[in-house]
Design a protein around this nucleic acid. Structure first.
Lengths: 127, 127
DNA sequence: TGTACATATGAACACCTCTTCAGATGAAGG
DNA sequence: CCTTCATCTGAAGAGGTGTTCATATGTACA
């Protein structure tokens, strides 16, 4: 709860209040990591495809239009973070969305996809 | 609604069903972009700091422990995507969280920060 | 056992991202 | 005006990320 820097501060009260509410550094980076896993269109498509239930690798590749190698690499990453889990049956591997937290984020994000979304910064973001 | 590839498909019905539900390519990339903006710890800290109300650049730098230049660059990006908006008063610039959609994502993410979170892939993600 | 097939992996490469440094802009105040 | 200060910007470099290609693993089935 010590300070650390605070060279020039305008509203010192707000600053220390916000500092209080700020999650621990580790929590912030973990959350950023999760967002990072959702930040790739191909990975995002994989997860959206898994919202309704498990699918095998080749079907995931077909649905998302990626090479099976790319899908495998992506799933490996997601699996390493326990966002996705695999069930094996013979030579097939069926993947499912395992992390309810991520499912919730996807639901929120997709719900807004239909209505709003999309601001492509043409030049700048001034009013 | 045409096909396109589908070299090897196991469960053709599921595949086409999932294809139906899959959002348009543009929507997917837009959503991925939003997640990408939340995927950087420093940007995430900025946004979390702004959850409670507006702050000026130097206070944001103090709260999040970044250089003012880094903060300015980050805010520029967020501003370009209308996630954040600026109010100017003299030489100061006060930023606020403008996108309710992003606010919702942050709320969901932070709510889970306190309880669960964090899987650091030591080696792999197998069971 | 040997071939076919589904998936997994490693290495390498092109691309993007974030930070820093130096300097520009533009308002306030003497 | 000239300086100071808050913020903004551009260029450049280090590091990270995602794809592909080639190959490995391991299951099934003849």
């Amino acid at each position: 709860m010590v300070d650390g820097c605070a060279v020039k501060v305008v509203d010192a009260d707000r600053v220390s209040a916000v500092r209080e509410r700020m999650p621990a550094a580790e929590d912030v980076t973990d959350t950023a990591d999760v967002f990072g896993l959702l930040a790739d269109p191909n990975r995002l498509r994989l997860l959206v495809a898994l919202l309704d239930g498990e699918l095998c690798v080749c079907d995931l590749a077909a649905v998302t239009g990626q090479s099976e190698s790319a899908v495998s690499h992506a799933l490996r990453l997601l699996r390493a973070h326990r966002i996705v889990a695999a069930r094996r049956s013979g030579r097939m591997a069926y993947y499912r969305l395992e992390d309810p937290h991520v499912r919730m984020l996807l639901d929120v994000a997709l719900a807004h996809t239909e209505h709003t979304e999309a601001i492509h910064p043409e030049r700048d973001g001034r009013s």
